[in-house]
Design a protein around this nucleic acid. Structure first.
Lengths: 131, 131
DNA sequence: AAATAAAACAGTAATCATTACTGATTTAGA
DNA sequence: TCTAAATCAGTAATGATTACTGTTTTATTT
């Protein structure tokens, strides 16, 4: 199951690398379609899964019911707005401390962790204040 | 939309309170059915959503595609095994520090956060070693 | 206690993100 | 050039969850 080259996969990867908002499969599909009008949604899903399984991208499972994808593999956390659902990066260097502290409390082996902060983004706060 | 008393909802709540493994709606359904054989899956989902929206229980969205539910509202984190999918609690008191540190890096307002540790649980480690 | 309105129910149908399947096309390696 | 594997577009199927329907239960008012 080696990865053969694929224009479609490259286009997905290119698009995802340019975005910092961690789009969903559907958003990626809509955008890659501008370059490859015949690409199918199934191809997008298949390639995203392929890339995630090979550790090339990260799959983010959030409070909304859709998966989001992130091409930035550097260790970092995320903030999701409860209002509009937008996601932004948060670079905290607590990773090692957290895992070490958690490891002491668990008989299992910890290999990674995810942190999601929730709240209200600036533009939703503004909208609230004006209402 | 006040909450009227309901035997079914109480039974769901009772069951969930007794469990520390954060069961899915389906597992809750299977178990509450032993007490109320006529309860429907829709009732379980509706009540879980009702309870979560009223802040009585927590909804956990994990790497597996099913929602899990937690009746313990005290601030704590979770560990999920990549092998069997089991979930256990991890009580770390890093909550305030983490949110304070994150707040400095975000223009938005942070109101809460979730931490999920991933890895291998003891019984899956044992199974691996024996294979 | 009888009447009325709201909440909840069981059962079932619908939704929606995601995955699997199809037969055709492309690519890698002999 | 030939063969097997990988990929594709298009479409059907899956599976968790939600919405709908007509009925029953509960709270409230008379």
């Amino acid at each position: 199951m080696a990865l053969n080259p694929s224009r479609q996969r490259d286009a997905i990867m290119d698009f995802l690398s340019c975005r910092k908002d961690h789009p969903t499969a559907e958003v990626i599909y809509d955008n890659v379609k501008k370059v490859y009008p015949k690409i199918s949604l199934g191809t997008v899903y298949r390639n995203l899964t392929l890339l995630a399984d090979n550790g090339v991208i990260r799959r983010l499972r959030t409070r909304d019911s859709k998966d989001h994808f992130d091409a930035d593999l550097s260790p970092h956390y995320h903030f999701m707005c409860n209002g509009c659902g937008c996601i932004t990066d948060i670079f905290l260097d607590h990773a090692k401390e957290l895992e070490a502290a958690a490891a002491k409390l668990t008989p299992g082996m910890i290999t990674g962790h995810e942190v999601f902060f929730y709240g209200t983004c600036p533009s939703c706060m503004k909208a609230k204040n004006e209402a």
